[in-house]
């Protein structure tokens, strides 16, 4: 499973960092999110799914591959 983040959509809410801190972080200059670990281990996938669900901008996807 791979994590995709649609950066222009991100509104820097920080929700993904709170849900899955091992997988997401925010840029220093503007708080826009980026992916730390594109292929997170299985035990983090639930956290990533939570991030997908609570991202207010629908900017995160978890895709097969």
């Amino acid at each position: 499973m791979r994590v995709e983040l649609d950066e222009p959509k991100c509104v820097a809410s920080g929700q993904c960092v709170m849900a899955a801190p091992e997988v997401f972080d925010q840029r220093d200059e503007d708080g826009i999110a980026f992916v730390l670990d594109e292929k997170p281990p299985a035990d983090l996938l639930d956290d990533v799914r939570e991030a997908v669900a609570i991202c207010p901008a629908a900017a995160i996807r978890l895709v097969d591959r």
Binding site: A12, D25, D28, D30
Partner: peptide, 17 residues
């Protein structure tokens, strides 16, 4: 909205907070 909001998002990032 996005242009203005992005000017003030940095200090509210989770780790800065």
């Amino acid at each position: 909205h996005a242009r203005l909001r992005r000017m003030v998002t940095a200090p509210f990032a989770v780790k800065k907070v």
